[in-house]
Design a protein around this nucleic acid. Structure first.
Length: 123
DNA sequence: CTTCTCACA
DNA sequence: TGTGAGCA
């Protein structure tokens, strides 16, 4: 099972146009310049995922803000490289850290914890 | 719907 | 950066 909840929908070029407010020509233009890489049907028809639609809207915004395509491309390249995910998906909530501190505090590492606390004279 | 191309802002 | 038009 993949992640579902109706999130695996794909859209045709025509639908993508309507959903993004872009022209088909513009979408192909961006793809030609490396900004998009949609899946294809066996008949070479483009299939856009929800993420592609979102990306198009973001590209649209960035370009409207004065970005060049090279910069927009670099923007997304960095996102991939640094694996930046939405904050909500990051496993860095305190609730996942506190338990570690708790076990350290009351477990066999109590002495280690006190050593860490007491070194440097406690500030 | 797809590809390409030439031309024009 | 993006379009219009014509073709296959």
């Amino acid at each position: 099972m993949k992640e579902d909840g109706g999130a695996s929908a794909v859209y045709s070029m025509g639908v993508a146009e309507r959903l993004t407010g872009l022209t088909a020509r513009q979408i192909r233009y961006w793809e030609k310049h490396g900004l998009l890489a949609p899946d294809r049907t066996k008949g070479r028809q483009r299939l856009y995922a929800e993420a592609d639609i979102t990306k198009m809207k973001e590209i649209k915004r960035l370009l409207a803000d004065g970005m060049t395509m090279d910069r927009v491309k670099a923007h997304f390249a960095n996102r991939e490289a640094r694996r930046i995910r939405p904050v909500e998906e990051r496993p860095n909530r305190m609730s996942e850290r506190i338990p570690r501190v708790g076990s350290l505090y009351g477990g066999a590492n109590r002495a280690e914890l006190e050593r860490l606390i007491n070194r440097k004279g406690g500030k």
